[in-house]
Amino acid sequence: MEENKRETALVTGASRGIGRAVALELARSGYHVVVNYRSSEAKADETVSLIEAEGGSAEKLCFNVADASESRRCVENVIARRPSLDVLVNNAGITADNLFLMMPEEDWNAVIATTLNGFFNVTQPAIKAMMKARRGSVVSMSSLSALVGNRGQTNYSAAKAGLIAASKALASEVARLGIRINVVAPGLIRTDMTQNIPQEQIRERIPMRRVGEPEEVAKVVRFLCSADASYMTGQVISVNGGMF
């Protein structure tokens, strides 16, 4: 398929981990994937190379989702260059764990700015384009932490829970326009962000007794973006091995 005829998917934080797996999975489904990154250019290049090695189409795009004006400019640039913006995956996020009473204000603000403000900064211009086309899919990456709350993650839990609430509200606003808004909430997934967690101890809390893989999350995202999920919106899908 010619690159300029492919539908377009923008995946934030796609240079590694779950974001990279999502980018690869969407590329395999035929999308031209815009691989967003903030600082890991070499990793973003790797993601693009992996997609192209499989015959897919991709490009890298550097911007910080926490920066409202930069995000809007870059998303609008994608919209202007591509025939359409069909899929947005809000995956970018950071952690800055600490007990609440010891948490610096800047750590609280940084996590909220990237995860929750980033949702607004990127999704608003994307939704405007989808409204004109009267179709589109937005999937945002929440977390098990949003559903059960993890000790030492008040900022992360708050941001990820905010994504769920915002997505449900937005879904009700744009459903009649053919736009679907859904959320995926992973549990413990094998990524760089979780490599320092004592996984042997946590495995005992997981009914499936194993850590999840990024590809297992990516396949759920791909489903939610596809026509197979055409009657699903405002939903939160947990991918966590049975943790509650």
Rank of each mutant, 00 (worst) to 15 (best):
residue 128 K to Q: 13
residue 174 V to K: 03
residue 61 L to T: 07
residue 189 I to W: 07
residue 53 A to Y: 01
residue 40 S to I: 05
residue 17 G to T: 05
residue 84 S to Q: 11
residue 232 M to I: 15
residue 199 Q to R: 12
residue 10 L to E: 09
residue 227 A to Y: 07
residue 100 F to A: 14
residue 74 C to R: 12
residue 70 E to I: 01
residue 15 S to G: 10
residue 109 N to R: 15
residue 193 M to L: 12
residue 196 N to A: 10
residue 68 A to E: 14
residue 65 V to T: 13
residue 13 G to S: 07
residue 4 N to R: 14
residue 222 R to E: 11
residue 102 M to S: 13
residue 38 R to A: 13
residue 41 E to D: 03
residue 7 E to H: 02
residue 187 G to W: 04
residue 49 S to M: 09
residue 62 C to W: 00
residue 202 I to V: 15
residue 105 E to F: 09
residue 33 V to C: 04
residue 147 L to R: 12
residue 59 E to M: 06
residue 99 L to P: 00
residue 63 F to I: 05
residue 235 Q to Y: 02
residue 188 L to H: 03
residue 34 V to N: 07
residue 6 R to S: 12
residue 107 D to M: 10
residue 135 R to D: 06
residue 34 V to F: 05
residue 42 A to I: 14
residue 226 S to M: 09
residue 151 R to M: 11
residue 143 S to V: 11
residue 180 R to T: 03
residue 158 A to K: 03
residue 92 A to F: 00
residue 158 A to T: 14
residue 164 I to Y: 05
residue 188 L to Y: 13
residue 80 A to T: 08
residue 213 E to M: 08
residue 79 I to A: 14
residue 134 R to L: 01
residue 196 N to T: 10
residue 50 L to H: 06
residue 72 R to S: 14
residue 186 P to T: 05
residue 15 S to A: 15
residue 119 F to L: 11
residue 55 G to F: 00
residue 194 T to R: 07
residue 67 D to H: 05
residue 123 T to R: 02
residue 196 N to E: 11
residue 179 I to K: 00
residue 229 A to G: 09
residue 26 L to N: 12
residue 93 G to S: 00
residue 33 V to I: 02
residue 12 T to D: 07
residue 49 S to W: 00
residue 169 A to N: 11
residue 132 K to E: 14
residue 85 L to H: 09
residue 81 R to I: 08
residue 13 G to F: 06
residue 28 R to V: 04
residue 230 S to I: 09
residue 202 I to C: 02
residue 31 Y to N: 10
residue 68 A to C: 11
residue 81 R to K: 15
residue 202 I to E: 11
residue 126 A to I: 01
residue 22 V to A: 01
residue 239 V to R: 08
residue 52 E to R: 14
